[in-house]
């Protein structure tokens, strides 16, 4: 499996979107089988195919005044926000060489994120019908004795997922909230069409986390998962 890594750093969403499409073409032409694009974005709101205009709580003018661009894009899911405090991972993978199963792929992304969180002692959770990774606010750590995760009453979202697949090649992907300062802009939208409370690694751990420090770990987890057809 010829799998390539692209680390774009802090980049405008539109440029990274274009870059994904270029990589997609190369993979479609079989130049290589898959890629993982890692980056951070300047503040931006992206509107997925399942979004409605009511999911954006402020006017376009206000977004413009705040320096936030907005793009309607071809991924699944609703509205979301991206900013410099998130690690974005766009896996562009040819599922023809892996496993042609859309939900399986989404679950693999969740598993990866849950593994990443567990390295920080955080217990990532999944809820049926709510793609993404969540934590239980009242007991976010793996070693918490009390577990109310079954009830899901106190859930906060830490990882958002939304993908597009064309000819069984994936693009778009997942965003992991890392920095605590970057969560305020989520109040401008209804993420995924719901009244969701967002959280981040820093908010849970109460210490600084550098995005660069978790990139290699995420790459390793992707590499391991690429054997998933076995």
């Amino acid at each position: 499996m010829d799998f390539r890594i692209f680390n774009l750093g802090l980049i405008d969403f539109k440029k990274a979107w274009q870059f994904q499409k270029e990589i997609f073409k190369e993979i479609k032409n079989d130049s290589f089988n898959g890629a993982l694009i890692l980056c951070q974005h300047y503040p931006v709101i992206t509107v997925g195919r399942q979004a409605t205009t009511e999911n954006i709580k402020v006017s376009r003018t206000e977004l413009k005044n705040r320096g936030i661009h907005m793009y309607g894009i071809e991924r699944g899911g609703g509205v979301t926000y991206h900013g410099p405090g998130q690690l974005i991972a766009y896996p562009v993978l040819n599922l023809n060489y892996l496993k042609k199963d859309i939900h399986f792929f989404l679950r693999q992304l969740e598993e990866l994120a849950i593994e990443l969180l567990s390295d920080f002692g955080i217990k990532g959770l999944r809820y049926k019908g709510l793609t993404g990774v969540w934590i239980d606010k009242s007991c976010p750590f793996l070693n918490n004795a009390y577990d109310s995760s079954e009830k899901g009453l106190d859930k906060q979202k830490i990882v958002s997922i939304g993908i597009a697949i064309r000819n069984w090649i994936t693009f778009h992907g997942m965003s992991i909230n890392v920095k605590k300062d970057d969560l305020d802009n989520f109040s401008l939208i209804k993420p995924c069409g719901m009244d969701i409370e967002m959280t981040s690694l820093e908010s849970i751990l109460h210490r600084d986390i550098e995005i660069d420090d978790i990139k290699n770990n995420l790459i390793l987890k992707f590499r391991n998962r690429l054997n998933w057809t076995a």
């Binding site: 071809e74 859309i102 792929f105 064309r166």
Partner: peptide, 16 residues
Amino acid sequence: DDLVELTTDKATFNLP
């Protein structure tokens, strides 16, 4: 040619 786009869960996909 891409004929139609569909969605399931948080994914869109095409049918050529």
